[in-house]
Nucleic acid binder design. Structure first.
Length: 242
DNA sequence: ACATTAATTATGT
DNA sequence: ACATAATTAATGT
């Protein structure tokens, strides 16, 4: 149930793991080697926490494989999902926003592989590695932007539109094409979707059932396939550009 | 226009 | 067999 202990890779990690990822794509082979040799790789079981809200931020991570959801818990024990992180992105980058503790909990949505570095290396990364700072601040900006629009949706849109919008974002960021349509690439429950959109799992269930009858989506346990993204867009209340 | 409650059924280990 | 997930209807705000 819990994750494996952190360890130095007993075999050298291959440089190709990082060369195509935006924060590192401007670096030469030698620099990537340095970075990999400083990293600790770690495997996380699905459902296990990678780090906890409020804990001292000791490391920042790169998600090599798998999907992660970032979650906050309210006083009353209810969960709210802040966002999902697809493979290839940084997470736990508390130092980037001037924090010493993690602002939220990161849970592996699937089995996940991370690379981790001590936060004290952050300043070195920022000044030694060309493009690292600008790229990471770009992703921070994107995430803030996404959370921002979700706040707007929560305040103004109806449940149906919020769910449609969330599903559309999920297939944009983590969609995988199948013969049936575009599938959300990690397991997601009605409960998850309700925690993402501020509603109940019952309402999500009813809506998905209705959409399924109309051929908009096809869903099974912990799985959602979008068959008609365009129709979902129409439901989402997005303004068609004139 | 939604939540809540509750009962029932399906699905994966 | 058991826990988790999903459906459905009825009722409440």
């Amino acid at each position: 149930m819990s994750s494996q202990p952190a360890r130095k890779p007993q075999f050298r990690l291959d440089e190709s793991l990082l060369t195509d990822l935006p924060p590192f794509s401007r670096l030469d082979r030698r620099q990537i080697r340095e970075i990999l040799d400083l990293a600790v790789s770690r495997r996380h079981d699905a459902g296990s926490a990678i780090f906890d809200e409020g804990a001292q931020a000791e490391r920042f991570y790169l998600l090599l494989d798998g999907h992660v959801r970032v979650v906050r818990i309210t006083e009353t024990g209810e969960q709210v999902i802040a966002l999902h992180i697809p493979p290839g992105q940084l997470l736990g980058i508390a130092p980037a926003i001037g924090r010493e503790t993690y602002p939220a909990t990161a849970v592996a949505a699937t089995e996940a592989i991370t690379l981790g570095w001590p936060v004290r290396l952050w300043p070195d990364f920022v000044c030694d590695y060309d493009g690292f700072a600008t790229e990471t601040y770009k992703t921070v900006g994107k995430r803030i932007g996404e959370m921002n629009t979700r706040i707007m949706e929560l305040a103004t849109q109806q449940v149906e539109q919020r769910i449609a919008n969330s599903i559309l974002r999920l297939i944009n960021q983590s969609g995988r094409k199948t013969d049936e349509g575009i599938e959300i690439a990690f397991p997601i429950t009605r409960q998850d979707l309700s925690e993402l959109t501020g509603t109940t799992l019952h309402t999500v269930s009813r809506l998905l059932s209705a959409w399924e009858k109309q051929g908009l989506v096809k869903s099974a346990r912990r799985k959602i396939v979008v068959r008609d993204a365009h129709a979902l867009m129409l439901l989402s209340g997005a303004q068609p550009r004139h």
